[in-house]
Design a binder for these strands. Structure first.
Lengths: 208, 208
DNA sequence: GGCCGTATCAGCCAAAAGGTGGAGAGACCA
DNA sequence: TGGTCTCTCCACCTTTTGGCTGATACGGCC
């Protein structure tokens, strides 16, 4: 069995250090590089040509993880990308998979789970944490609860605390249209008021 | 200089592993134990008698970090507790300090910052990340923006998406009183609508 | 005792949000 | 071509919310 080269991307030094220590215990896995931002990740992926990229989604300022994934897929499509993050929000999962992520792990994952994901990734296998899988499953069972792109956009602005009028101005649509979208969003989220929609969106959809 | 014994408390294996690796590079610091929950932390603190406890606030199910801090202060008051968490919400900071934390670090802190905090803690010095310090400073400069207990209680329910009527019923007060409290909350948070108040509360105050 | 902060309540009015029903245009697909 | 989805818009009406002013009551503090 040949060695699997891994690139770590996380803005937390502690997390990178921890992953390095854990992965270092495995004979068939070698960390060949680290990056603390999306920009650094692109460079490092080019330079070290890792087989697997372990990447956090939230990375402070600059390019976020999703964007980094997209660009990596374009530039070095042979590298498998595994998301390694704290949150399991629906929106993040879908966007990461859309962008081309091979796996989705949560930071509270057991070391064995991480090892398995890295080994699986090079064989083209998707590995994800149980909570993540169950969320995806949930979405498959209730496809009518998936927001349309426009609705998601509106919901995102809604969580900024904007009024219907402001939403209309921002999206260049009438207040009437805003209300229509909102009614659909409420139905899909299973709430009755904008207050509850915001609470649900921020907590469940991870719109922070 | 004698060795400083440290206990790590975090439900993420990766983070514990990372801290261990980083602290291991320092000759005067030794990790003597690890715990993945508040309950485990109390046991480990009793058993290993560390000089410093590095503790995460969010720990999945069971006892949360704040509660663990309080209990540690009672049982082993000679141990210095440093909070090591991802978030810098006002509410968390205040509660942690109230509970008896000596320091407050964010997970994106540089290794040197962590070392300094551990060394400072045994000498009775408070060390906190810059964003945390600036938040505390902010509160000192604007004491009139601190919510009263009743207002905080109401805001907490507000983030559940309740209407004024429901809030009144829940708190056994009239809708008029609810409106009065809300008006005060809006002023203190610097917002104009309930939507913005909810967004601010969940994001900034950490009411999740 | 007077002052201040907190919590409680009232009424009035304007603005915003939500519910209902309907409708047209464009995209996509079977 | 017909059906479905998405996005857009409108009118009408009810409910909710927010802004304003003012009031009472209790407890701590100087």
């Amino acid at each position: 069995m040949s060695t699997i080269s891994v690139l770590l991307v996380d803005d937390h030094t502690v997390v990178r250090s921890g992953l390095k220590a854990l992965l270092g215990t495995q004979a068939d896995i070698a960390v060949v590089g680290e990056a603390a931002s999306g920009e650094e990740a692109l460079e490092a992926a080019q330079e070290h040509q890792p087989a697997v990229v372990l990447m956090d989604l939230a990375m402070g300022a600059g390019m976020d993880g999703i964007e980094a994934i997209k660009q990596l897929r374009q530039r070095t499509p042979h590298q498998a990308i595994i998301v390694f993050t704290t949150y399991d929000s629906d929106a993040d999962i879908v966007r990461a998979v859309d962008a081309g992520a091979m796996g989705y792990l949560l930071k509270d994952a057991a070391p064995e789970e991480i090892f398995a994901a890295v080994r699986g990734a090079v064989q083209g296998k998707s590995v994800m944490s149980a909570p993540v899988a169950s969320r995806l499953f949930q979405q498959l069972r209730h496809p009518d609860e998936i927001l349309t792109p426009r609705e998601a956009e509106l919901l995102s602005l809604l969580t900024q605390g904007l009024s219907n009028r402001d939403l209309g101005k921002r999206l260049f649509i009438s207040e009437a249209t805003v209300k229509t979208h909102l009614a659909h969003i409420y139905a899909k989220l299973g709430v009755e008021t904008r207050a509850a929609a915001i609470a649900t969106a921020i907590r469940r959809e991870g719109m922070r």
